[in-house]
Design a protein around this nucleic acid. Structure first.
Length: 972
RNA sequence: GCCCGGGUGGCGGAAUGGCAGACGCGGAUGACUCAAAAUCAUCUGCCCGCAAGGGCGUGCGGGUUCGAGUCCCGCCCCGGGCACCA
């Protein structure tokens, strides 16, 4: 799940931040050196005491559960990071700090909190980094994971480290392979609307209760008449993981094929930006389309940002319409062309058909010669339809998606030489091949209605095809295709008339008619395609699949798991010039011939089998890691069902269950989040998990942006080396241009957290990142501004600890009522800030309280204020808070101490200051009893000198009094 | 083109339809200091005014309301997603 900027060169050392400790500073001032001592000491204590180890209700990790058994549970999760070779920059931990603050707050408010962090360590970038450094990917990956663990520990995040996993751990990927076997061993029962074990399908086929599903039995003969191999093929065609020969996204520059989701809109690889070409290849596919409707429907049950839901809805792309069959006369005899349309109401205006170049019926429809009088524009100058179609197909296959984009969508195509019949009016319509019709969507064939579809209009105009309006455009319409609503026209035959109906009515009537005629039916289509699951890569999970002498796949039994990733001489992928569309994928696992063939006894005695040489995509591990965190040491199951039910189970009949809070970036809106939902639903259907969704609540954190600088070639220069002079920016003597962008290697504007620890400490870094804005917002990094929260910590410190002696100097003086009112208001507001993930406002309220304490009680604060203040600080700056707590005489960690509760008695106030307005402009403020009624407040307002002067001699038209809020005198 | 977000001081950002700019950075002035840093104190939206005070202010234009940053309509700009999906 790595973000795109993670391809890997070690970062240059970032600039040293400033702030050297003053030579004559008091010995016990809170400075960076003291912060470091405190932080390292508390990190050791937490670890030694197992402070953040979270017990399960049962199983290996259940020690101590009785202590938390009556607490509500909370599962807080960060998106699985990829352990980058260059380590963290200060942008990465924004979300990790946020979840840590929230999780610590939940623990202090009485929850049993599960929070840990693992590593998505397989995949392309790890492999590329290893290739660059000449080391085995396992070596570099493990070193990167160790470095990231060190950096996170230094940040003070309260993770349960016993639960930390890496996708590359054999003990982890064994279960990834096991889940693959479950998916391979399942099929989708459309009537039951869920996946079921494949054995149940076989039993139903055997018993005759069920016939093979449409498209799974090419011979068409009944199951009973099929031989063993034919039966295996039929069963395999039902599986949720299946082999399929189809055009795939081949990326020569990366040397692998990619999923649709990994290809950008302009036809390039999301990672690396290399061109992607369509190329037919047999690959493993995941039948995610079987879940399209449930993935769409269940979005309504999720507490996710609306933007993400919209992106998933768009990606799934449900559209309702109709399948219509057009009979055709091919040279080889009659054929039937099924088209999908969302506008069956426009059928009377269909004046030609278009098939995608790869459509399987094209060959059967190509005529021997051009019909007499064929328009020259339709032939592309070819002597015969066959020549024209072949040339066109070749040309479009050679185009990458990028090329198709560049050509500004000028319509191209050729006539195949034959005609079809429009079922509603018997009209003979010409059949074209054109690449504006896509193979993978609908049926790969359309009926073209130029009057109501702009694409068809463009094509019809270019090729001189007839245009018949079937929806009356409004008065004064001067556009081309009309896609709006209006009364149907020109839409009647002897049997049925749509004329005068609106679009929705016309659709219903024509679908009914088509169904009665047997010419079509209403149907639903999705944009979502099945997920291409094979990669020609070394650094991924091997498939638990072998092939027999018939080249048919066989699942390895569970007892053969894990299938270990073999050693090979050269694990680097075979890549090609990035535009070499004709290159052939070559999986690196094939370089170990001893591994590639294996002798096994799978029930028929020892036989030689050929192993699957592709590996799984990086997404595989992140599809289920949240389940493994629950029960990471379980060797008998991916997760104990009782443990899953406790942490992720539904809370009510309507609840989908899942993680209580999932925090990560928007970039995973369709990739990871869709794949993970799909796997989770399969596991749910097969009875392995009780939750039907993995992530009940999703929150997108913003990014840390930072200034980046380009020279006059537009090349980024190292931001830490740029200096500002008179509002202009220079790298050495060269003037550079400033811009702002997401912090990362590509913009050369990374800031290393290690430098911040050295200059200020981890607590200051944590506070700074939380203070600059609400968690879901991106914000620019400004090293100069870090000092603000550093001062806050120093001031709090000084209110508790004597800077010169190090002694605690809190007093036992009772605070005055004003202070207590402020304290309890602060508690109430800090709680709101914590619960809404707006930690910036919580920090602001803490700052105000501390400023008040400084002004009224310096040098030492009353204990009755200092203690709740420190407890409120604890989730945000846990080390400093622990240290202060301990210096105030407490032996135990405050991590489990109850969070302060606001006393309602102190939230109520005796008097309030309300503004008095004249004509909605504030002219005075008066202080009144907080329970004063409207008449009393108005009377008090009229008594105010300034107000009295302003009202003197004027007629008051109206008086608005909102008790406790304001008074407004409205004059004429 | 379509679909989402978002426009508030020099900057990051606060504001259940009810005192716009909390809190912080930056800036100014002062205290301490030989001096500087650190620390502390005061001020700091813009304009007019010596002041008291007044005027203007939440992208632009309208509307609803006693009252709009907040609600409604129409624009402009910025960021993101999708893009020949029939």
């Amino acid at each position: 799940m790595a973000a795109a900027d993670d391809a890997d060169v070690p970062a240059p050392p970032a600039a040293r931040a400033m702030s050297a400790p003053a030579a004559d500073a008091p010995a016990h001032r809170y400075d960076a050196a003291l912060a470091e001592r405190i932080e390292l000491a508390w990190q050791d204590r937490w670890e030694a005491a197992g402070t953040f180890e979270t017990p399960n209700p049962t199983g290996l990790l259940s020690d101590g559960f009785e202590r938390v058994a009556d607490r509500p549970k909370a599962y807080v999760l960060d998106m699985f990071p990829y352990p980058s070779g260059s380590g963290l920059h200060v942008g990465h931990p924004l979300g990790y700090i946020g979840t840590d603050v929230y999780a610590r707050y939940l623990r202090m408010t009485g929850h049993n909190v599960l929070h840990t962090m693992g590593y998505d360590a397989f995949g392309l970038p790890a492999e590329q980094y290893a290739v660059q450094t000449g080391q085995h990917p396992r070596v570099t990956t493990e070193a990167n994971v160790a470095n990231m663990r060190r950096q996170l520990r230094r940040l003070g995040v309260a993770h349960d480290l016993r639960r930390s996993v890496s996708t590359t751990d054999v003990a982890f990927y064994r279960w990834t392979q096991w889940i693959f076997l479950q998916i391979y061993g399942a099929w989708y029962d459309v009537e039951a609307d869920r996946a079921r074990p494949i054995a149940e399908l076989v039993a139903e086929l055997e018993s005759g209760r069920r016939a093979p599903a449409e498209g799974t039995n090419p011979s068409g003969r009944p199951w009973a008449d099929l031989d063993e191999l034919e039966r295996r093929r039929v069963v395999d065609a039902h599986r949720l993981a299946y082999l399929h020969e189809a055009p795939v996204n081949w990326c020569p520059g990366l040397g692998t094929v990619l999923a649709n989701e990994e290809v950008t809109a302009d036809g390039r690889s999301e990672r690396g930006g290399f061109p992607v070409f369509r190329r037919p290849l047999e690959q493993w596919m995941m039948r995610i389309t079987a879940y399209a409707d449930r993935l769409l429907r269940d979005l309504d049950r999720l507490d996710w940002p609306e933007a993400i839901k919209v992106m998933q809805r768009n990606w799934i792309g449900r559209s309702e319409g109709a399948l219509v069959t057009f009979p055709a006369d091919g040279p080889g005899g009659p054929a039937a062309i099924d088209v999908f349309t969302t506008r069956p109401d426009t059928l009377f205006g269909a004046t030609y058909l278009v098939l995608a170049p790869e459509h399987p019926l094209v060959d059967a429809l190509v005529a021997e010669r051009w019909p007499d009088g064929t328009d020259k524009r339709w032939t592309a100058g070819a002597a015969t339809p066959k020549e024209a179609v072949e040339a066109y197909r070749l040309a479009s296959a050679r185009k990458s998606d990028l090329d198709r984009q560049v050509e500004e969508r000028d319509k191209t195509g050729v006539f195949v030489g034959s005609h079809a019949t429009n079922p509603v009016n018997g009209a003979s319509v010409p059949i074209f091949v054109a690449d504006y019709v896509l193979t993978g969507y609908g049926t790969g064939a359309i009926m073209a209605v130029p009057a109501e579809d702009q694409r068809d209009w463009d094509f019809a105009t270019l090729f001189g095809l007839p245009i018949v309006r079937t929806v009356q455009p409004p008065e004064g319409w001067d556009g081309e295709a009309f896609t709006g609503d209006g009364p149907a026209v020109n839409s009647a035959n002897a049997d049925v008339s749509l004329d005068g109906l609106d679009v929705a009515q016309a659709k219903r009537r024509i679908i009914a008619w088509l169904e009665a005629q047997g010419s079509g039916r209403g149907t639903v289509t999705y944009k979502l395609r099945d997920w291409l699951f094979s990669r020609q890569r070394y650094w991924g999970e091997p498939f638990p699949i072998v092939y027999d002498e018939h080249d048919l796949p066989i699942a390895l039994p569970e007892s053969e798991l894990p299938v270990l990733l073999p050693e090979v001489d050269d694990y680097s992928p075979r890549t090609f010039p990035e535009d070499d569309a004709t290159s052939e994928p070559e999986p690196p696992l094939g370089r170990n011939p001893e591994w590639a063939e294996v002798t096994l006894d799978l029930g028929d005695g020892p036989k030689v089998y050929r192993r699957e040489l592709n590996t799984m995509p990086q997404w595989a591990g992140s599809c289920w890691y949240e389940l493994r965190y629950l029960d990471p040491t379980n060797e008998d199951a991916l997760v104990d069902p009782a443990v899953e039910r406790y942490w992720m189970g539904p809370r009510s009949a309507e609840d989908c269950g899942g993680v209580d809070l999932y925090v990560g970036g928007v970039e995973h809106a369709v990739l990871h989040l869709l794949y993970a939902r799909f796997w989770h639903k399969v596991l749910h259907d097969l009875g392995h998990v009780s939750s039907s969704e993995p992530f009940r609540r999703l929150f997108n954190q913003g990014y840390i942006l930072a200034a980046a600088y380009t020279d006059d070639r537009g090349v980024y220069v190292e931001a830490s080396e740029v200096v500002e002079r008179d509002g202009r920016f220079f790298a050495g003597e060269v003037e550079v241009r400033r811009e702002f962008g997401k912090m990362g290697k590509s913009l050369k504007n990374s800031v290393n957290p290690d430098d911040l620890y050295e200059s200020y400490g981890a607590d200051t870094l944590r506070l700074y990142e939380m203070f600059t804005g609400p968690l879901d917002q991106s914000r620019p990094w400004d090293t100069r501004a870090v000092v603000g929260v550093y001062r806050l910590l120093q001031r709090i410190w000084r209110n508790v600890v004597d800077e010169h002696t190090g002694a605690c100097h809190v007093t036992d003086d009772p605070p005055d009522p004003e202070t207590l009112r402020l304290l309890h208001h602060t508690i109430a507001e800090v709680r709101i800030g914590m619960e809404t993930l707006r930690f910036n406002t919580a920090i602001a309220r803490i700052t105000e309280l501390n400023n008040h304490v400084t002004q009224h009680f310096a040098p030492g604060a009353p204990r009755a204020v200092a203690e709740p203040l420190v407890l409120m600080l604890a989730p945000l700056a846990p080390h400093a808070a622990e240290e202060l707590w301990s210096r105030m005489g407490h032996d135990d960690s405050l991590a489990w101490h109850p969070f302060p509760v606001a006393d309602p008695a102190w939230l109520a106030v005796d008097t309030v200051e309300v503004p008095v307005q004249v004509d909605a402009k504030v002219r005075a403020r008066i202080t009144v009893a907080s329970d004063a009624d409207a008449a009393a407040v108005e009377a008090a307002a009229r008594c105010d000198e300034r107000i009295a002067a302003l009202l003197a001699g004027r007629e008051v038209a109206r008086v608005v009094v909102v008790p406790g809020r304001l008074v407004n005198f409205v004059l004429h």
